[in-house]
Amino acid sequence: MAKQSNEPILWALFSAGGVFAAFAIPVHLFLLGLAFPLGWIPAPGYEYLHGLFSSPLPRIYLFALCFLALFHWAHRFRYTLYDGLQIKHLNEVIFVCCYGGAIFGTVLAGYLLWNFH
C-alpha cells in the first residue's frame, strides 16, 4: 500500500451517517418540528419524554444519531464548498471547520446525554 489516506474513514462516517439520516431523520423531524408544534398530533408530555430519554438505549441511539449525522454533514458540506464555490485555497480552513464542527457537536451531544438527569 502507498501512503494511507484518511479519506476512507471520513467517507465511511459520511455513508453511515447518510443511511442513518435517511432512515431516521424524516420521521423525527416531522413529529418534532411540524406535527407537535402545529398540533396535528398531540405531543407526548414532559414526563414521558424525560423517562424515555433517561433510559440507556435511547440515549445511545441519540448519541449515534447526532455523531453520524454530523459527520455526514461535515463531509458532504465540505465537498459542496469545494465544488460549489471554487475556493480551493481555503481547503484547509474548510476541512477544519467542517470536521471540527462535527467533533464539537458530537462532544456536546455526549456531554448532554451523559449528564442527562
Binding site: G17, A21, I25, H28, L29, L32, G33, L62, L65, C66, A69, L70, H72, W73, H75, R76, F77, Y79, T80, G84, G101, G105, A109
Partner: peptide, 14 residues
C-alpha cells in the same frame, strides 16, 4: 448536497 445542512440543523434541534 445542501440537504446535509438541514441534517445538521435537525441535530441542533435535537
Amino acid at each position: 448536497e445542501i440537504s446535509s445542512v438541514f441534517v445538521a440543523w435537525f441535530v441542533v434541534v435535537l
